[in-house]
Amino acid sequence: MSDSHGNHLQGRVSVITGASSGIGAATARALAARGAHVVLAARKNTDGLNTLVTEIRDTGGTATARRTDVTRLDDVEGLMEFAAAEYGPVDHMVDNAGLMLFSKWSDRAVDDWDKMIDTNLRGYLHAISAVLPGMIARQSGHILNLSSVAGIRVGGASGVYSATKFFIRGITDSLRQEVGVPHGIQISMISPGVIDTGWADKVTDTDGRTIAQDLNEDAIHPDRVADAVVYALDQPADVTVNDIVIHPTRQDW
């Protein structure tokens, strides 16, 4: 396959966390439709994972799944070993598993803060740690981190969530400089605005849920974000799409 044109996804091994629903599931479908071998991971919704694997296979794609808790390093390392055993070394690491829980500081929702830190920070770090050695050894690969417009601007009742997304912006730029440049590994980040993934209904804090549901009124479909992921990953090795921000047209922040 020439590296200057054509489909750069065909036959590539793509691991996607948080793949049982929302942006992760949409991304899995989109990559599989373009010939990638997708490895789907999620912590809880194994039924959703298995249904999606069946759907992709039934439409001619290549997919498998493994229940994975990204908050545990050993579990994420197991996911990489599983992917390599199924299809070969991991070409794409799509860090998507995330938790968005709104609350005001005065609520002191420490349990929610801890859950977001475990998933949104440690989960990404664990995946990066697990996939990096192989990519550095091969001097190729692509790490794509899903962030958020909340990592650009802080909104109401989203202080800790926004902070986790600012963190992702920081590590992504550091990876680009320290890993991408010397080792030829492509590093990308996509920051979606409000996407209709059912997230607003998962907010347990009462005031936070009201704010979330109001925000969600102008939300766009996860497929639009999946299109951006495909664009970022479907590039020749000498091109990196660093940063994409994708908003609903009517979202004002």
Rank of each mutant, 00 (worst) to 15 (best):
A200S: 08
A157Y: 05
H126V: 09
L49A: 06
P248E: 05
M135P: 05
R138F: 08
A36P: 02
L79F: 03
T210N: 01
I211R: 04
V149P: 12
T240F: 09
M100I: 03
L144S: 15
T51I: 01
G6E: 10
S158C: 11
L121A: 15
R66V: 03
V53Q: 06
I187Y: 12
Q213E: 14
M1N: 14
P133K: 11
V230N: 11
R108A: 10
R57F: 00
A85G: 07
A30R: 13
A84C: 13
S21E: 05
V110G: 02
A97T: 01
I246F: 10
A127H: 06
T68Y: 04
R34W: 01
V13E: 13
L79S: 04
S20Y: 06
A226S: 09
I128R: 10
R29G: 02
G24M: 03
S21C: 02
P222M: 15
D234Q: 10
P133D: 10
V230K: 15
A36G: 04
D205H: 01
S129P: 04
A127N: 08
D205G: 00
S21H: 05
A32N: 05
N242R: 14
Q186S: 13
V76D: 11
Q186E: 07
V241K: 13
E77F: 10
H247N: 07
E178Q: 08
V53C: 06
A200E: 05
G35V: 13
S106V: 01
S20P: 04
I185E: 10
L101A: 06
L79G: 04
S188Q: 13
D214M: 10
K104M: 00
D223E: 15
Y87L: 10
L215I: 04
L99G: 00
R12I: 02
G184N: 11
R153W: 00
L73E: 08
W113L: 10
H8S: 04
T68L: 06
I143K: 04
G151R: 09
T164V: 08
G22N: 01
G180Y: 14
R12A: 06
A150P: 07
T119S: 03
M93Y: 15
G123T: 13
N120M: 15
